[in-house]
Nucleic acid binder design. Structure first.
Lengths: 195, 195
DNA sequence: GATTGAACTGAACGTCCGTTCATATACTGT
DNA sequence: ACAGTATATGAACGGACGTTCAGTTCAATC
């Protein structure tokens, strides 16, 4: 592992996080040992503890970083004005962002139950905050009459589930380009909300 | 564990399966030990091996049983005639069946990567066969002009993801009844496929 | 009441787990 | 060249893991 000067930071180092991310995504948190992660980095198990407090911190830091990135990226998006424009922006953003980080997404959705309670709380708040972004768009569209929704909350959950599902089957060398996938999903989302 | 006469069957006994299902759903396959399962049954760990070959068989039998039940139940459904009728039947069936078995559903979607390769193959074929049921409905509807779909395959995956997502948030004591949820989702699915 | 055999216990097996730490090595700044 | 610090090793820790098995219990049968 590359040396560096000065004391290492409080949070887990990026090399270790990368290795953990790959392995957690492939085999699951509980099934991956610190020795496996160390081997992936090219180091003995003991050395990992210069970069992370413990195994649980690896999982938490992965999820926290992922969600921080998510908000940073969403904040930077040019969102348009009308609810319909904003919904298209959200749809395309969500798909594009998630397709760029299949491992992080997989972990964020599958390993929630392996977070210790206090860590879970932090992550859950962030996750719900993101959901609220979509919910607000849908509510605004319903209020303005642009959308026809039987239930805003359920529509939020349905759209999120539908969009996140893309990561389970999309392959870069597959039949459809990312842009084509975004377009097709936006088409379905738009119709589903009656816009 | 209750005694019985005669030799036990080749597949895992139902008491053990129930305990394993509960624990696997709550904590994940890799995080649950045979001793925990035994404690849930009210027995020592060694006794489990009178009812199952090994831990992996527990997981496989749970998934296989779940999918067998799924096909048996779907076969028994009164499916209607037109693609629209059939799609409504599928939507309502999928939600109702999955809400009745939250633990089995959770395991079937989360623990695929913990199946040994030959077991995974078996389960994957069954899962895809079920997906094809929906895909056939959507294709028939597209061919007959009842549905407007940009891409049949993606619509299949999108609808499945959307419907299965219900199990992650639905609570029996929540705001909406099952029938209400089925109705709302059918409304969204119908619009998404342009019917 | 003796015999059978399934069901269960409790201990043991070898292995792996997360984590710690004394020690050794490599680098940085002087 | 040396001191000082950062980083790595490799062994060790207590404990848990999946699985096996000799021995025990007990309901059902004759």
């Amino acid at each position: 592992m590359a040396r560096k000067t000065g004391s290492h930071s409080e949070i887990t180092g990026p090399l270790v996080l990368n290795a953990a991310q790959t392995l957690f995504a492939r085999h699951g948190y509980a099934a991956v040992s610190m020795r496996q992660i160390a081997a992936e980095v090219g180091v003995q198990a003991g050395a990992l503890y210069n970069y992370t407090r413990d195994k649980q911190s690896l999982l938490f830091d992965l999820m926290k970083t992922h969600l921080d990135d998510l908000f940073a990226a969403w904040t930077a998006v040019d969102k348009g004005q009308t609810p319909t424009e904003r919904l298209e922006a959200f749809t395309r953003f969500h798909i594009a962002f998630h397709l760029d980080r299949p491992d992080a997404v997989f972990i964020a959705y599958m390993e929630l139950r392996n977070l210790e309670p206090q860590n879970f709380e932090v992550i859950e708040v962030l996750r719900k905050t993101y959901e609220t972004e979509l919910e607000n768009i849908l509510r605004d569209g319903k209020d303005s009459g642009e959308f026809t929704l039987p239930d805003t909350k359920l529509a939020t959950l349905a759209v999120i589930a539908m969009l996140t599902g893309v990561t389970t089957w999309y392959r870069d060398d597959g039949r459809l380009s990312r842009d084509r996938v975004e377009r097709i999903y936006w088409n379905m989302v738009r119709k589903a909300v009656g816009a």
